[in-house]
């Protein structure tokens, strides 16, 4: 794979990569660092990609692993203005409620939820992208969906 093709394929995955980093890291600076390290690592390992059709899950897996490595290395967190990104301008009640609800999930739960609901990935695709068993994906989605739905309803004072 040449650099031009790699660049084109990577940019096509930008939104997906952002959701992985956004879910697992805690601030914009870490997201930027994570994606840079992921791209460089993927480029170094490009020979291992035998089927170009599998570029997207391959790059997602590398990105998720980079995020996990960074989380393990870091000792302090600053909880973020990152999730402010969810709030559209001007003020949006739904976006604010979602921000507050998502903050109560753990990073792995946020990652599964983000990939499923923001990017439309199936359980199997999420399993390959994050490197976790399908049963774990299903459990995390079920738990997160249940709690997010209730939290959102409470935040927005919607009767069920």
């Amino acid at each position: 794979m040449d650099a031009a093709t790699f660049s084109r394929e990577a940019m096509a995955c930008q939104r997906l990569l952002y959701h992985i980093c956004w879910a697992m890291m805690h601030n914009e600076a870490d997201c930027a660092d994570a994606v840079q390290e992921a791209l460089l690592r993927a480029w170094q390992r490009r020979e291992s990609l035998r089927d170009p059709e599998a570029f997207r899950p391959w790059l997602c897996r590398i990105t998720a692993n980079v995020c996990k490595d960074m989380l393990r290395r870091q000792k302090r967190r600053q909880l973020s203005p990152l999730l402010d990104n969810l709030v559209a301008a001007p003020y949006d009640e739904e976006g604010l409620a979602l921000r507050q609800a998502m903050e109560q999930l753990s990073p792995p739960q946020r990652a599964a939820v983000a990939l499923h609901y923001f990017d439309g990935l199936s359980v199997e695709e999420i399993s390959r992208a994050l490197g976790i068993p399908m049963g774990t994906v299903k459990s995390r989605l079920l738990y997160a969906r249940r709690n997010l739905g209730l939290l959102l309803s409470r935040e927005m004072e919607v009767s069920i």
Partner: peptide, 23 residues
């Protein structure tokens, strides 16, 4: 969820462009 999905920030886009430029 779909209506409020976050979009890549300018900082994130710039980080990707820098890495790909270096490559």
């Amino acid at each position: 969820m779909k209506n409020n999905a976050p979009e890549p920030t300018p900082a994130f886009q710039s980080a990707m462009e820098q890495a790909l430029d270096r490559i």
